[in-house]
């Protein structure tokens, strides 16, 4: 929503202080008229602001995931990274592997197919595969 000038002030006076003096490592985009927010369905006309929306876009430009939240609750970067790693694994496997609920790198993946139907319980166990 803010201008690039406000972005610079926020970077210089607050965010860089959380980054040992370094600049924010990604581009801070300005969507002052809310057109990009409208395009992605996160612009709130009533307040004239954007809700907390996070979109994951794959190397082909396809939206793979999104999360939209009201303003008072912050996002979880670790969860976002987990999702990116899961989508990358699926992509590299060309769809031969899928990641069950709570999957983290190193945890069990599943091979979808007729043999797996009704047999997920043999491969995946909440007590074993959902822990940290």
């Amino acid at each position: 929503m803010d201008s690039v000038y406000t972005h610079k002030m926020w970077n210089d006076h607050e965010l860089s202080k959380m980054l040992d003096g370094k600049d924010v490592p990604f581009p801070m985009l300005s969507d002052q008229n809310g057109n990009i927010g409208r395009l992605y369905g996160v612009y709130d006309e009533e307040s004239g602001t954007e809700t907390r929306g996070r979109f994951l876009i794959d190397p082909d430009g396809i939206v793979q995931a999104f999360e939209v939240m009201t303003p008072p609750v912050g996002r979880n970067v670790a969860e976002t990274l987990r999702q990116i790693k899961a989508f990358q694994l699926v992509r590299e496997s060309k769809g031969t592997a899928v990641t069950p609920a709570g999957w983290k790198p190193g945890k069990t993946t599943l091979k979808p197919g007729p043999e797996l139907v009704g047999n997920v319980w043999k491969e995946w166990n909440p007590a074993k595969d959902l822990d940290d």
Binding site: M1, V4, H7, D23, P27, T51, R54, F87
Partner: peptide, 28 residues
């Protein structure tokens, strides 16, 4: 956009070939 001390113009298509995360938030 503001990026590493400069004002730049960003086009989403520049990032094709990479995984992208696009974030919206209410304000600076």
């Amino acid at each position: 956009a503001f990026y590493q001390g400069k004002f730049v113009e960003v086009d989403l298509e520049e990032f094709k070939g990479n995984w992208m995360m696009l974030c919206f938030y209410p304000g600076d």
